[in-house]
């Protein structure tokens, strides 16, 4: 299986923030959710992939090619949807096409028209009159029209209601029905979009906490709860994001550590929300 995107030991240091030794790989044909809090390093990582920021060290490969050496070639095949859009609000979708056409050798006007129609976007209407969901769909329509093989979406769900998120999921799953494509999307809130992610990369304070198949992550950790006073200090230390309340404790536990715990402890399957929350509370990295 080929990796459509691959980062190996990527670092970048700023005055107040550093991205350290970031490594992950997205195989062709799959969707990766890139999760972490605001300021954890998601947008920085995406900008490094796109060579909008220069990395200090490490290797980044897109479609198996070095992202800087083959930048022009790679960008023809990437569709990017950033939090800050690249269009002018006064433009219409027709203006957007005129602006993008010279940049993309593979631009397909018929495909663009078909996508606008499918997404119910008025070609002559000013973009500023569009809702957040419509703007997102316009960006995706543009990406699909230049035959992108890799979609990179930075915080696509922010400001979207449940209906628009559902529509986005459908669009992404349709895109990935072609096994040669790939999707990386970032999000700071775990939303329903994670349901369709095959891989999860979890970043915290500029470091990768976890990057693997989502189902493995969900099987690795259990949510644990129990009454106060049953755990020894050593047992408490095993629990990630351990929290005591007047009515009991809760936290996250690596399932392998479950045998170290008293039998009366309640263990439930973990979910992404709780995993992110507990790691942030615990501020400790697990590999």
């Amino acid at each position: 299986m080929n990796n459509i995107l691959e980062l190996n030991g990527v670092s970048k240091t700023f005055a107040k923030f550093a991205l350290k030794d970031v490594s992950f790989a997205l195989p062709e044909g799959f969707i990766m959710g890139f999760i972490g809090r605001n300021g954890a390093g998601k947008t920085t990582t995406i900008k490094l992939i796109l060579n909008m920021l220069k990395k200090d060290s490490g290797i980044i490969r897109v479609f198996g090619k070095d992202h800087a050496q083959s930048e022009q070639e790679i960008k023809q095949r990437i569709g990017v949807v950033m939090d800050q859009p690249f269009y002018v609000e006064e433009w219409t979708p027709a203006d957007l096409e005129k602006a993008l056409l010279p940049f993309y050798a593979q631009w397909d006007p018929a495909k663009y028209s078909a996508q606008l129609e499918e997404f119910e976007l008025d070609r002559q209407k000013k973009i500023k009159a569009f809702s957040r969901g419509m703007k997102l769909k316009l960006m995706i329509a543009a990406a699909l029209s230049h035959q992108a093989d890799l979609l990179i979406l930075d915080e696509p769900t922010s400001g979207l209601d449940a209906v628009a998120r559902n529509e986005l999921m459908e669009i992404l799953q349709t895109f990935i029905s072609d096994e040669n494509k790939g999707i990386l999307f970032s999000t700071h809130v775990t939303s329903d979009l994670e349901k369709i992610a095959d891989y999860i990369t979890f970043i915290q304070d500029g470091r990768i906490v976890y990057s693997d198949i989502k189902d493995n992550l969900l099987e690795k950790y259990s949510l644990v709860k129990g009454p106060l006073g049953i755990l020894s200090p050593a047992q408490k230390k095993l629990i990630i994001g351990y929290q005591e309340r007047s009515v009991g404790f809760e936290g996250l536990l690596d399932r392998a550590d479950l045998r170290e715990m008293p039998a009366s402890i309640l263990a439930e399957p973990g979910n992404l929300d709780e995993i992110v929350l507990r790691f942030n509370l615990g501020k400790r990295t697990h590999e």
Binding site: F30, Q173, K195
Partner: peptide
Amino acid sequence: IRQLAKDLKISVITTMR
């Protein structure tokens, strides 16, 4: 696999498994 994943709104890998 990919059709079922889409219809159920779940990941392709889960369906493959």
